[in-house]
Amino acid sequence: MHIAEGFLPAGHAVGWTVAAAPFVVHGARAVVKEVRENPESTLLLGAAGAFTFVLSAIKLPSVTGSSSHPTGTGAGAILFRPPVMALLGTVVLLFQALLLAHGGLTTLGANAFAFAVVGPWVGYGTYRLTRWLGGGLLPGVFAGMVLADLATYVTTSLQLALAFPDATTGLAGAAAKFLGVFALTQIPLAIGEGLLGVLLFRVLTVNARPELERLGLLSPAPVPAAGGAA
């Protein structure tokens, strides 16, 4: 999902930067507020950042014969709501743009919009919808993390299609072309990411129960350790 350095026309680069900036600034304030008001959240915030740091570094093979990487942004969005991930995700992208020549500074806005804004919001929305429909914590986490991953790559495809519409088939043709590169490859990765998310939340429901209750993910249990996972 990293659009490479210099690969978006200047107008698009500026436009996406302007679009992403308020989310990132708002996210930075959300992180500061969370740490100030709930210092005990710091550990879990670190876990959310670390999770996306690891997952976005690992390139995995897919059924299509291409490889790609997961995003890991859904976990933090479900735990702390999406604004927090707008900052944490952008930090990851900045690290990769500056040290790994992966992504870039001119495309940071577009990449942040896909990876740190759309992905987390779609993941969080999917999680909330699953819970609202009566699903448990873990099904919600799985669905949320799978769709956070997929939504990021769909957004990247659409951003590229907007910048490079096909000469004959236009925007739709270009979108189909870029989705063809990204979307199918990403499906097994997204499922793998969902499973890792379930694993993470299984550990958290046992070891970070007070935090999950305070964040509203679990309702307080009258009997301690009753059943554990939802």
Binding site: A4, F7, K59, G65, S66, S67, S68, H102, Q186
Partner: peptide, 14 residues
């Protein structure tokens, strides 16, 4: 298969 990265595939196409 080569297992090339999808990001690189797009830049090559462009």
């Amino acid at each position: 298969s080569e297992y090339g990265g999808t990001d690189a595939t797009v830049t090559q196409e462009l």
